[in-house]
Design a protein around this nucleic acid. Structure first.
Length: 199
DNA sequence: CGCCAGATCCACT
DNA sequence: GTGGATCTGGCGG
């Protein structure tokens, strides 16, 4: 079952939590590259100083102000692409950053995309999984809920019970004013080997 | 192992 | 001109 726009329209913390266990699927060259989401972070509105939307509406963050269920893909650190899913109502700028996947389908292709790296190093980080699934600028603003012709979408997966879900502060927010640097808006599957960092 | 700096582009100031 | 929702290899312990 493909995840619908209603799913992504929920509040961002719920979406981030519920995305654990869901499958991210990339269609490329007639084959499926996919993985189970094991780590995600919420970025919630213009008040959240960790969120790109906190600087106001710009060309870069425009997609976050649009309808839910679209891809917000941006470039950072001079070499990395990041994949987010837009959440909540139009005009409320929020998204979930996908931080790690447990690889499931198309692993040889992912390995090639990752210059021969394997296992843990395939998708254990936001820039790694973007590289493994060939997610770049062209997919920014792509509709992940399209009925046909989609290159990227999400599918249902086994629910992860609460006792297997852990939270922590978001990764990489250096010198962001509190409480934003410390709010526990990162969700990950406890003891899963493909999570980017143990805690 | 852990730590650290370099890589390298682009949006925003 | 600056610095970032990161990753990697190299170096030291």
């Amino acid at each position: 079952m493909r995840l619908s726009r209603d799913f992504f329209a929920q509040d961002t913390l719920s979406v981030a939590r519920l995305l654990l266990g869901k499958r991210l699927v990339r269609r490329w060259n007639g084959q499926r590259l996919s993985g189970c989401i094991v780590e995600a972070e919420a970025y919630i509105g213009q008040d959240d100083l960790g969120c790109h939307a906190s600087v106001g509406r710009t060309a870069r963050n425009e997609v976050m102000f649009g309808p839910p269920g679209r891809a917000y893909v941006y470039f950072t650190y001079g070499m990395h692409w990041m994949f987010n899913i837009v959440t909540e109502a139009q005009e409320f700028a929020a998204a979930v950053l996908i931080r790690a996947l447990e690889p499931l389908e198309g692993i040889p292709a992912m390995k090639r995309n990752r210059q021969g790296r394997t296992g843990f190093d395939l998708c254990s980080g936001p820039a790694k999984l973007a590289q493994a699934l060939l997610i770049t600028r062209e997919l920014n603003s792509a509709d992940l809920c399209a009925k046909r012709g989609a290159e990227l979408w999400l599918e249902d997966g086994p629910p992860i019970p609460d006792d297997k879900v852990a939270t922590s502060p978001r990764i990489g927010l250096n010198n962001t004013p509190e409480p934003w640097e410390s709010v526990p808006w990162r969700f990950y599957v406890r003891d899963n080997l493909f999570v980017s960092k143990a805690r």
